[in-house]
């Protein structure tokens, strides 16, 4: 059976199954277990309503529990065992990993990514959002800068492989160097340390659109009176931007910043397709992939390190969400 046909059948079975589950479970609850008849209809209705939320929640909670909560525990547990998984070695994977030069490079690079990418993407996003705010063709400009969001990391990497190509007749970078008189083409992806920044720029290119969309909406939400008042008081456009607008959207800027930070800690595609982690460009997710299928103990240990780095943001997010609900 062709996979596509299998997929269509899965859609039908899955959708049918879901609808069937919800419909039937509600029906059984109302008609069989707690029928609003018998000697105590009121109590039965109340009981049914006590159970019903869990009927609605059960499939989602089961999937979340199995696919996201269990792995946190499961990964940690697995990371305490050796390569083949049959011998308990405590924190052995972690100690050998921290001593590994490859891990140190990946960790250092990842911190570099975390510092640079969110900052650059937020900066460009804010810049474009502000510049296009009053522009007649602003929406077209925003739409074009937003476009890379739709492109896969692999596709984006290929696009930039052309730009970085080690050949003045293919790569734009080398063509520009050639134009200014450089004799030999330069493979920018092999220039130690700086190659990281060339890879980072790909993610900045993708994420600027995201930052722009959110910040642009935030800029629109600023009360007009505050800006008018500042202009009447003689503020110049730069003062209006930095002293009136930016402070008012600081909360949104933080959100954008943290969202991109989380993303940076997960993206392995760019490094994997551009350099394969060579030339000192490895980051934690790609370092982990190089151990995946080879040494699950080490791979889960790396994953857990990523989790620990993400943890503060996670806690902060939960606190924000709870504060908002009150």
């Amino acid at each position: 059976m062709s996979p596509l046909l299998q997929g269509i059948i899965t859609v039908i079975v899955g959708v049918g199954g879901c609808v069937g589950y919800f419909f039937l479970s509600n029906l059984i609850l109302d008609k069989v277990i707690f029928p609003p008849r018998a000697d105590n209809p009121g109590r039965n209705i109340n009981r049914a309503n006590l159970v019903r939320p869990w009927l609605f929640l059960f499939p989602a909670m089961a999937a979340l529990g199995l696919y996201l909560v269990y792995p946190v525990v499961g990964s940690f547990y697995r990371s305490l065992y050796n390569r083949s998984g049959d011998e308990f070695i405590g924190f052995g994977n972690y100690t050998t990993m921290f001593a590994d030069n490859g891990f140190q490079i990946a960790f250092f690079n990842n911190m570099l990514w975390v510092l640079v990418v969110p900052a650059a993407a937020t900066f460009f996003g804010l810049l474009v959002a502000q510049l296009t705010d009053r522009l007649k063709w602003g929406n077209i400009a925003k739409s074009l800068i937003f476009m890379p969001m739709a492109i896969s990391f692999v596709g984006a990497s290929l696009i930039w492989k052309f730009v970085y190509a080690n050949n003045a007749d293919i790569g734009l970078i080398n063509a520009i160097r050639d134009f200014f008189g450089a004799s030999e083409p330069l493979d920018v992806l092999q220039v130690r340390f700086w190659n990281n920044f060339f890879l980072m720029f790909i993610l900045v290119w993708i994420q600027t659109g995201f930052a722009m969309v959110i910040l642009s909406a935030a800029l629109r939400g600023i009360p007009e009176e505050t800006i008018e008042a500042a202009i009447i008081d003689g503020a110049n456009p730069f003062q209006v931007f930095f002293k009136i607008k930016v402070p008012q959207i600081m909360g949104t800027i933080v959100v954008v910043w943290t969202t991109i930070t989380i993303l940076v800690l997960k993206v392995f595609d760019i490094v994997y397709t551009m350099t394969g982690g060579n030339f000192g460009t490895d980051i934690l997710p790609s370092y982990m992939m190089s151990y995946m299928f080879r040494d699950d103990g080490r791979a889960t240990a790396v994953a857990f390190v990523i989790m620990i780095v993400v943890l503060p943001v996670m806690i902060w997010n939960i606190r924000q969400a709870r504060a908002e609900m009150r």
């Binding site: 869990w54 800690l265 989790m307 709870r322």
Partner: peptide
Amino acid sequence: MDFAGRGLLIAMVVGLLVVPLQLALVPLLQ
């Protein structure tokens, strides 16, 4: 719907938003 533990579940969903996929790979494949 009103039920006990709703706030806790919402907080959990928010927390799970940022769990790195990398964690899930090995245990789930197993």
